[in-house]
């Protein structure tokens, strides 16, 4: 939502990290509305296969997307660790199902590197960059691209 303006003035951002399959990804914490574990979804027949269904979030209808499937990384199992990350997109809310959430990491913006060449597979286009911390490598998700419906 407010990334474009806020990243410009800030030196560092906080990333919420989560696991998609084996990969560790992150997104700007300001883009996240909430994280919950409501698993009572209503499936929507004929929806794209990465749409798991719709969720009643306090009276709002939220589309839940299997992030792993969208990125071509297999399917997310609905285990106990799985969470919905609800994000604010420009036309209402959408949610991602991720297999596990991790810590919030503060990273300096100038530490952002271009996504490596071998990330250019099907999922490559969804990453805006990579952050390297002491022990981790975090792929920064480009939420707008992920949320853009398939052409």
């Amino acid at each position: 939502m407010a990334t474009a303006s806020s990243t410009g003035s800030r030196q560092s951002i906080e990333l919420a990290t989560f696991a998609i399959g084996e990969a560790l990804c992150g997104m700007d914490i300001l883009q996240i509305q909430e994280i919950n574990k409501i698993m009572q979804r209503t499936p929507v027949p004929q929806a794209p296969d990465y749409v798991l269904g719709v969720l009643n979030l306090r009276g709002k209808i939220v589309t839940i997307i299997d992030l792993a499937k969208k990125l071509g990384l297999g399917e997310t199992d609905s285990t106990d660790n799985a969470r919905n990350i609800i994000v604010n997109s420009f036309d209402g809310s959408a949610g991602f199902l991720v297999s596990r959430i991790g810590d919030v990491v503060e990273v300096a913006l100038d530490k952002q590197e271009k996504p490596p060449a071998n990330m250019r597979g099907i999922q490559g286009k969804y990453f805006s960059g990579v952050f390297k911390t002491d022990s981790l490598l975090i792929g920064m998700l480009d939420i707008d691209k992920v949320l853009h419906p398939d052409e």
Partner: peptide, 25 residues
């Protein structure tokens, strides 16, 4: 209304929330 990912699903006019909190299309 349904989110934009579901706009391509022609069969639905929207969704609603039922008494038990679940969603019906």
């Amino acid at each position: 209304p349904l989110g934009r990912h579901l706009q391509q699903c022609q069969g639905y006019a929207g969704a609603t929330i039922m008494g038990d909190g679940r969603i019906a299309l």
